[in-house]
Design a binder for these strands. Structure first.
Lengths: 249, 249
DNA sequence: CGCAGATTTGAATGCAATCAACACTGGTGG
DNA sequence: CCACCAGTGTTGATTGCATTCAAATCTGCG
């Protein structure tokens, strides 16, 4: 339990993230700061939670990069979302006991484990906090829907441009992106697994995007060269992220 | 407001559905029965809620069949879920003001409009009800994930077999399926739009499934001929539906 | 009956997968 | 320090699943 005066850096990241999607009162923020956290460092390419498990804590990403994925028969993998500092990718485990997918780190990552009990208690006492958490899980769902629409109906070029737009906007909302660039610590193979494409094809489409001077991307560092055209190329409209208005711009 | 003794048929359907995913106390069920409902009949192929709107009610499906979909640039459509009696497809609007997709009826449908205010009040007073509703939205999200994995990584044959398994299991859970058959009031074009396939290809795959004696399907009425083989063909495992154990079998 | 929507069939095309090398990179150990 | 190695990125050639286009049949219904 945090006994010091004021929020810890970790609690701040949680609050910063929540404030991109909901407004919190001072009282609610204070209560959030009292959430107990146990910290855990996770290596690159290591699972944090696995399908089939029944976690008793949620994990908040403090630093690093995490993805949510499922493995199908014969080893095919589908990545279903990316998560960054402040996100609680397994918040759903609060009300869905057994994990139907896994969550793994794609970069050296630090997570804060928060007991379900503490979260449940908090949500019962503070309806505004409950609303914010619930809303967070609903936005996750909105992202799944958007990805579903993309994989189902968008071309490879659109999908790749779209996912770059999405990560950029979400990173910018919590202050993790520079003016026009950010870190995307995934391989082309992993990009393929999130978009339903082969590694080879991802590679070729990325070359096209570079040729078209929409982005540069060398060793997991993305720079956006033409934000307007990139959004058009990706058929990207940030509404589905349900960010508070002042956080989108 | 329901002043009669005992639940109305409409409230019963809501409770029946919720009890497939959560357990409710008598007190909670009584409270649910007091939810105010205004009814509305919706024709086939008519929208109930549209993208961009900010509803002040949620709609529970009383009877009929409903789907959730998004329209992308140049008119492509992606259907993202199907909903049947007892479901509240726009429950998310409780905490996500503006709709990022539309919901439309695929059969003559009757819905019950329940004011957000009443739902919010109820969830605050009854944490068990809140948990059940939250869980319901989380299961929706789990279905999106499963569909995403399917569209991203499964073959056309798997996807079609899979969606048939899913609808069957969900219908059976609320008593809407016979022993081995159920109504699926969607066209092959709509099946395609939910699975990211063309109409023509859906047609051919359905013929294959019939040839393999897995299902029959004439005019929106599906009969399952070999449940075990169908599940295998669709790589279907019902875990992601998070039904209570006694409702799966 | 006639019509619109839905299903079915056929043929041609194309996007992306797969297969197979090869090049580049960073990290490790000899 | 350099050789080596595994993982990643890149390229080329081939294949194939699914799309698209087009037209014919079927179905239910006013």
């Amino acid at each position: 339990v945090n006994k010091s005066y004021g929020p810890t850096p970790e609690h701040s990241k949680l609050i910063r993230k929540l404030e991109t999607i909901a407004s919190l009162s001072e009282l609610e923020k204070e209560a959030l700061c009292k959430l107990p956290m146990r910290f855990r460092n996770v290596d690159e390419d290591t699972d944090i939670v696995r399908e089939g498990e029944t976690p008793s804590d949620c994990c908040m990403v403090v630093e690093g990069f995490v993805c949510r994925y499922k493995v199908l028969q014969k080893g095919q993998r589908q990545i279903m979302s990316f998560h960054i500092a402040g996100d609680i990718p397994d918040l759903q485990s609060l009300h869905l006991e057994v994990m139907d997918h896994s969550i793994g780190a794609k970069a050296p990552t630090r997570v804060a484990m928060i007991p379900h009990a503490a979260l449940n208690e908090l949500t019962l006492k503070f309806p505004g906090v409950m609303a914010a958490f619930w809303r967070d899980t609903l936005i996750d769902a909105a992202v799944f829907r958007e990805w579903l629409a993309g994989v189902g109906r968008r071309t490879a070029h659109q999908r790749i441009a779209h996912v770059i737009c999405e990560v950029f906007v979400r990173m910018r909302a919590v202050g993790l992106a520079k003016e026009d660039s950010f870190e995307l610590p995934v391989t082309q193979a992993e990009l393929g697994d999130s978009l339903g494409l082969s590694t080879v094809h991802v590679n070729r489409v990325l070359q096209d995007l570079r040729k078209d001077e929409l982005i540069t991307m060398r060793s997991k560092f993305v720079r956006i060269l033409d934000w307007d055209r990139l959004q058009i190329a990706g058929d990207f409209q940030p509404d589905y992220l349900h960010l508070r208005r002042d956080r989108v711009a």
